[in-house]
Nucleic acid binder design. Structure first.
Lengths: 204, 204
DNA sequence: AAGGCGGCAAGACGCGGCGTCTCGCACGGA
DNA sequence: TCCGTGCGAGACGCCGCGTCTTGCCGCCTT
């Protein structure tokens, strides 16, 4: 199964790696993913094409790592963790708070272009899609799982509910509106999602 | 705003149009969307490239129309409409029924490959994405809106609920699992979604 | 019946990006 | 000192894109 002669990672140029990340993110933001080329990334980064092909298999692969790296740096810069869900005891308020923050993030152009490009590529490329889900999406969703489990212990959520499915009631609608542009994304919308999901559509 | 000399549609070859639809769907199914080329479609259809470029702007555009055409033919073949939501008076049962049918459809390879390819392209190409949503997705969603309105009049759904948002509680999770492969797609799963959405996560 | 008009199949063409390969160069360890 | 190897640079063949050209054929007009 080992196809490549495996280049020596200890000799790898950190400088080139950073330059490639920066160039890839900048180009995707400026001209979009389809018009971003490996040649363009190499030229902007001041790097030989071979250096890119030596360490990555495709421009999507480069962008995924660049995006992961961006996320890590942002998280480190923002103190400990910007990604934990608060637990004040008021589940509805906590969910609305974190979903509002997600709305802000989804509307930030710096985030939006590469994220959408990666999601799109992941749909068609299962290998990349799996990595995207495993490294970016699922860790976020697990935060909701934890918060919902806490809510179950506090009696705010029925004990027979599966948290991994429950979170999709408010996360997936937001994701779909953003991905497919099927509707406006506002605080009012996400607040409504939380209310509907917690209390149901049927009369009580 | 009129850029093209507008070819004479009355002289258009129906034979070529059909051959192009068939070739496009076949190729996408066989080698996937990224490896499908305009040249390949033309060759398989026994058609000049210019004939494709005369009537469509991109391979994604071709595939969108081919897919719409496929859907129309399938709908016509299946009697009147295969896409209406039953209204037996039991909202939960009706929703579970139609979602199970959707699960079957999403797992049909003939449907899956082109649909996923179109969705992926729509993410990155807003023009195509808007058309995809307007012509394929939103009409389906409006069926849920109607069924939910009927349920509101019957007292099965609270009157202050917005049906267009409510339907997302069970449709979007399924859509996301399918698109991003974030989890298994089963009848049990969609049944659970309906139960959670109707009765809420909180204790009653 | 004769002529034109326009879509048609076929394919040549230039362009540009892909992925590979070949150079020297720099820098590390024996 | 001398390999070994990643590096920047860029040449190379390949292929698909989107346009353009050629000759054919059917329809509409006259």
């Amino acid at each position: 199964m080992v196809k490549k002669p495996a280049p020596d990672a200890s000799r790898r140029s950190e400088r080139s790696r950073r330059a490639i990340y920066d160039a890839a993110l900048a180009l995707v933001g400026e001209v979009g993913f389809p018009k971003t080329t490996v040649e363009g990334i190499a030229a902007r980064a001041g790097v030989g094409k071979q250096t890119i092909y030596r360490w990555w298999s495709s421009k999507a692969d480069v962008l995924l790592e660049a995006f992961l790296d961006l996320g890590e740096r942002a998280a480190q810069a923002a103190g400990q963790q910007s990604d934990a869900i608060p637990d004040t005891g008021d589940l509805a308020a906590d969910l609305k708070f974190v979903l509002r923050a997600t709305v802000d993030e989804l509307c930030d152009p710096r985030f939006e272009t590469p994220a959408r490009a990666l999601a799109a590529e992941g749909l068609v490329n299962p290998q990349l899609g799996a990595e995207f889900v495993a490294k970016l999406l699922e860790p976020q969703l697990q935060l909701y799982v934890r918060r919902l489990r806490s809510a179950q212990q506090a009696g705010a959520v029925r004990p027979d509910i599966d948290p991994r499915i429950a979170l999709e009631l408010f996360v997936s609608p937001l994701a779909q509106r953003w991905l497919q542009r099927t509707g406006p994304i506002t605080y009012a919308y996400t607040d409504t999602l939380v209310d509907y999901a917690l209390h149901g559509l049927a009369p009580r």
